[in-house]
Design a protein around this nucleic acid. Structure first.
Lengths: 236, 236
DNA sequence: CGCTACATTGAATCGAGTCAACACGCGTGG
DNA sequence: CCACGCGTGTTGACTCGATTCAATGTAGCG
């Protein structure tokens, strides 16, 4: 939990984050008050039910937002990547966190204090507008996922989850010769799909037989994203 | 599709709607430009995928927001009651409707033109803030529903849906001697729960055996909301 | 009064969860 | 350096909730 001097203005992920709407002087102000810390895989940034202290802005790593369901099974609600914000819903509605945030791999994250962020929002209409649109998109995605959860079989949802992982975490800066791969526990993958880990393993096995994916330890190579996409839309 | 002269300022549902944040002169301005029309049960206000023309404000009736899933099965995403708005997500994010809206019974609805509403939002910070919080709540509810859909069995989800119908549509103005009842098709109830109508009928039958509900044609009397609530939280 | 849409019930089927056993990899400590 | 143990991955067998299909009943409406 150490604080470092990382200037927002020169942050590598500034361009990807909504803070690109902020002029230099706003970023400077933020740099002064923000915190910075790193999390190892499995460490949690905050727990469902606690009150937000500020806005998290992810600098590096992969983070999952997840909720505890009945009988202790978890559902991953959103995947977070560098440049993304975390905790804005709770902040904006002034309510407790409705999900927990946990690092899936070594991650570094800045924390902008609540008052700083809310002040920024009040002053910067572009930022406020972008935040509004962000939440609207979240809502749309969540409702979409809801209907898919209700009616799509696990096979299709898993195919979709693999494509989602690719589109979310693929590094597009490199002209990708190699197929995208991600190291993810079967447990997490199951939580993302909303099923049991054994089921994930079995269907992943089918996908391997069909040469749609390849695995290497916990690493999953997405070989045929287009075909997987097609599988996920089987019934549409 | 006829337009009537209903002044927003004297609207019966003004107090329940977010428009209670608006001063008289704003309401007058809105009254001038808004439309009004009625829908019979089964009629649709708009379809998933089309662009929003304005903000709907429900005056009377019960309306469902629903999405088409795979193989033509629908999922009800939200229930709408008098005083509620419809279509703001699409309006605020400037994207097509992500769900359709259909009247479940005779309903009357006002339509505030897009420009009028957006203008109002820009001028009235309280309204803008309330809208933001509204969407945040929608998001929270949707994510909550997502995890329940993933892990709760149909029995619990049905119990919850019955309680939701009661809390949403019960008229609290009357000191309720009679137990709450609602006329809803088994199909709609199934879409709300995310299951097949036969399953709804069967489990509803069990609830009848346990005297938790009573039915009379398509009307369902919720006799024991507290016990139903308990059933819905069985595993929590 | 009969037609159509909706409600209900039963039987068969299947997707997916659970349980249990086993394999594998990895880090730690002997 | 190897043995052990723990966490995770994998596989198989069994079970069961829930869907589907099919048949029948019922209510409301033109």
């Amino acid at each position: 939990m150490k604080t470092q001097f990382l200037e927002c203005e020169f942050c590598q992920v500034k361009g990807k984050s909504l803070f690109h709407f902020c002029p230099s002087h706003e970023l400077e102000e933020m740099s002064g008050s923000k915190g910075y810390n790193q999390y190892k895989a499995g460490q949690t940034l905050f727990h469902e039910g606690s009150m937000p202290m500020g806005l998290f802005c992810v600098n590096k790593g992969k983070i999952k937002l997840h909720k505890m369901g009945s009988d202790g099974k978890e559902q991953i609600v959103r995947l977070v990547k560098p440049g993304d914000f975390i905790g804005y819903r709770a902040l904006l509605s002034d309510t407790p966190y409705s999900a927990s945030a946990t690092a899936m791999e070594e991650s570094s994250v800045c924390l902008v204090p609540k008052t700083t962020f809310l002040g920024l929002l009040r002053k910067n209409d572009n930022l406020a507008d972008a935040m509004m649109k962000l939440i609207c998109r979240n809502l749309e995605e969540s409702e979409q996922k809801l209907t898919e959860m209700a009616y799509k079989p696990v096979r299709e949802r898993l195919a979709e989850a693999l494509v989602l992982l690719k589109t979310t975490y693929e590094d597009k800066s490199i002209p990708d010769a190699p197929p995208f791969s991600i190291a993810i526990s079967r447990e997490d993958l199951a939580s993302l799909v909303g099923t049991a880990k054994e089921t994930v393993i079995r269907i992943l096995g089918e996908f391997k037989d069909d040469h749609l994916v390849r695995t290497e330890g916990r690493k999953i190579f997405v070989l045929e994203p287009v075909k997987l996409e097609k599988i996920s839309k089987m019934y549409d």
